[in-house]
Nucleic acid binder design. Structure first.
Lengths: 154, 154
DNA sequence: CTCTGTGCAAACACTTTGCAGCTAA
DNA sequence: TTAGCTGCAAAGTGTTTGCACAGAG
């Protein structure tokens, strides 16, 4: 991965920004300077920022922007598929009394978290590149989607 | 999985409750009726509840308990390893501008979320039992632990 | 008897909502 | 011009903290 203009990730090249503008227009969203700035910051940041962090960063070039706008923009971008929310984040803590090996499926609509157990997932191998840098305390396979109840009924 | 006393999961059998008491004592936690009630409810609930939901349920048998106690108890139980917090849950939303296939490692100390990419994880197979019941919109392999910076420095 | 745990209340952090004026198209 | 966006302010939800009393060990 090269530097600033390597084209990999982490820079807001003209091509990327044009694609962004096109995508907004296609979705019926206006291309405002605030939106553009938020998106650019999001691309530049390697570690998935919270709205607050994006806000701090965007303010460096756009001192008048409000946290709400950043929040709303990030949500909009997630909706049109230009960004995404990191799996699982954003809701209240959920507790689990089941200590056996298992995996979770979370319904994005009703927020239920449902256990399942698929043996093949019990022994996910931690890649060497991770094991070398970090202490891994928990490994998980995790699915999100719409559950049976939400799909039918309401 | 059988009914209430099948012994699988979801019931607070005497054996389980005794083991719980032992574990508390071993960790230096007192075995109070509130703690016991919270733990029992957690075992009985199939879908990982938030503190609020546990609270509502515990109140049915313990009308005077406070939400704080439930919260603190759930946290304590997680600390001594008798329960756990569902991966990822509990913090602010995190956003991701990287749409390419990748996985996340989250540092439990500094809350950084770090991308990595391990090809073998890109095509995790969704078990049939899940595919039949749910619409899966996102699949993820996710690790939690302590990152390089937190491990050394502070 | 002692020290931890509980309940209450206030403080905090994050998100959501309503609204008036602004602006991209 | 006009529908959608922004900024501000207030309210909502979930979590944390401090303290006095009560109860487990």
């Amino acid at each position: 991965m090269l530097g600033k203009s390597g084209g990999g990730r982490g820079d807001g090249t003209k091509v990327e920004m044009d694609a962004f503008a096109a995508r907004c227009r296609a979705a019926g969203l206006k291309v405002t300077p605030q939106r553009t700035a938020v998106y650019k910051v999001l691309l530049e940041m390697e570690e998935h920022p919270s709205a607050e962090v994006v806000y701090q960063r965007v303010r460096e070039v756009f001192p008048n922007i409000s946290l709400d706008t950043v929040n709303r923009t990030l949500l909009s971008l997630s909706e049109i598929g230009t960004a995404s929310v990191v799996e699982g984040s954003g809701d209240a803590k959920r507790f689990d009394g089941n200590l056996a090996n298992h995996q979770h499926f979370k319904c994005l609509k009703c927020k239920r978290i449902i256990d399942f157990h698929h043996k093949a997932f019990d022994n996910v191998k931690i890649p060497g590149s991770i094991k070398d840098r970090f202490v891994v305390l928990k490994k998980a396979v995790y699915f999100e989607g719409i559950c049976d109840l939400c799909r039918e009924g309401r």
